[in-house]
Design a protein around this nucleic acid. Structure first.
Lengths: 153, 153
DNA sequence: TATTGTTATACTCTATAACTATA
DNA sequence: TATAGTTATAGAGTATAACAATA
């Protein structure tokens, strides 16, 4: 229901058409992502933060700033709230006491697993494709992603 | 560089693989969207609001709440800021004075056009596909989107 | 009474700049 | 002097609840 806008140009190249189709999906998936975050009572940054932490792999707070692409000052508050919920812990890095490592608690690992299961599950629309088409789609998207990465350098 | 997480499961179905490939692109495109909004000195909601308004087609504020999927109370502030920049105008609806219509100003139409040109331009990665592959991708994505819409009802 | 949009409030995210504690 | 993380501050988005004007 009008979740995306009609194109302004009448004539489009195949690339533009493919991109338009993809943007429609992007738009609806953005909403799904908000829905998932909400299911777990997490904000989007909290969700990504939890997702980015591997069990038993302490990571410095600065890495979270990179993952979330936000200023380091924000990480403080985001981690504060995760810590308040008992999902992560701050731990002084042994070799450099300026650095604080983040580690998932047992609760954090559990929630992260449930989140992964929920996020890895393909949306219903993928069932509309045959297995061969799904592989085809995977390969085409892979090529596009590789091309984008290459462009970024 | 590490913008998306590795899957937790080793064995995946074609649908899961396609979805994983798509999510990688979703993730990077989310950042591109933020970049575009920033290019035009707009917040994401302001960008979508502008995009959703058609020139010479007044729309009630309530429609914006639907498009942005947010509470009506937020629309007030978002529109305030667009109005402060002279991009849209509030206009009392003639038939029901409770309703306020939004209309793009001349500046608003101009900016909206530039935004559309920028957003409709396919990311560099699409050039990695042949025209035939681009059409194939468009069709596969179209099927997925249709399947998702159907699922939503 | 019901509806449209606003206001009040509270919380989270966001950036910038100044600060602390290490190194 | 430089770096990791914090704090202070300000602006924007978000929701809920209460409200005004209108229907």
């Amino acid at each position: 229901m009008g979740s995306e806008m009609a194109p302004t140009t009448a004539r489009r190249t195949p690339a533009e058409e493919a991109w338009a189709a993809m943007r429609r999906l992007l738009f609806s998936q953005r909403l799904d992502m908000l829905g998932i975050a909400s299911e777990f009572a997490l904000s989007p940054p909290q969700l990504f933060a939890l997702r980015s932490l591997e069990p038993d792999e302490p990571a410095p707070m600065s890495r979270l700033a990179e993952v979330l692409r936000c200023d380091a000052s924000n990480v403080t508050g985001i981690v504060d709230r995760l810590e308040d919920r008992g999902l992560v812990e701050r731990r002084a890095a042994p070799h450099d006491r300026r650095i604080k490592h983040l580690v998932l608690t047992a609760d954090g690992v559990g929630l992260r697993t449930r989140i992964a299961e929920r996020m890895d599950r393909p949306p219903a629309g993928f069932a509309a494709l045959t297995a061969a088409e799904q592989r085809e789609l995977r390969d085409l998207l892979g090529k596009v992603a590789a091309g984008c990465d290459e462009d970024r350098g």
